[in-house]
Design a binder for these strands. Structure first.
Ligand code: ZN
Ligand code: ZN
Ligand code: ZN
Ligand code: ZN
Ligand code: ZN
Ligand code: ZN
Length: 131
DNA sequence: GAGTTTGAAACT
DNA sequence: CAGTTTCAAACTC
């Protein structure tokens, strides 16, 4: 754990962080903000990673041990539709407006150049685009 | 923080 | 498979 420069305070989970420079000791996964998916579809990054929601900002969340039965069925259902659903993505993007240079693009977000599996338009995320 | 944009995921 | 809708995150202001 690198020390934070300056006077930032490392704090665990809990109530509202008082300061703007508060950092989390355990760089936990970022909280999701799902509302309609109940965190039981791949829209939810927690669910997509088979993680329970923890300290998330979701509403109507069922991705928790309290809903183990529902959650397990949702996982099974998702996997039955797509056996690769819970495997690391490698499918390629289909961006049309971001030039694959914004985080809307999964390739860009992953720090990977677009490849043969991508079907993007106006892509600028290719080998040689780095100055 | 509210509103808009974006493209994966879901659905038909 | 293609077209459409839904959704939550990225982005903008
Ligand atoms: Zn969620
Ligand atoms: Zn979550
Ligand atoms: Zn949740
Ligand atoms: Zn892309
Ligand atoms: Zn790509
Ligand atoms: Zn691309």
């Amino acid at each position: 754990m690198a020390k934070t420069p300056g006077n930032s305070v490392v704090v665990g989970v809990g109530g509202t962080p008082p300061g703007s420079n508060t950092k989390y000791e355990t760089a936990a996964h970022p909280p999701c903000h799902c509302k309609k998916s109940k965190c039981l579809k791949l829209y939810c990054d927690c669910f997509a990673s088979e993680r329970y929601c923890s300290d998330c900002k979701c509403s109507n969340c069922q991705n928790s041990p309290d809903f183990e039965d529902i959650r397990s069925k949702a996982i099974a259902d998702t996997r039955s539709k797509n056996p690769n659903a819970f495997k690391p993505h490698a499918t390629g993007c289909r961006c049309k407006k971001s030039a694959c240079l914004k985080k809307y693009c999964e390739c860009f977000t992953a720090g990977v150049v677009c490849g043969g599996n991508c079907k993007c338009e106006g892509c600028k995320n290719f080998v040689g685009s780095q100055l």
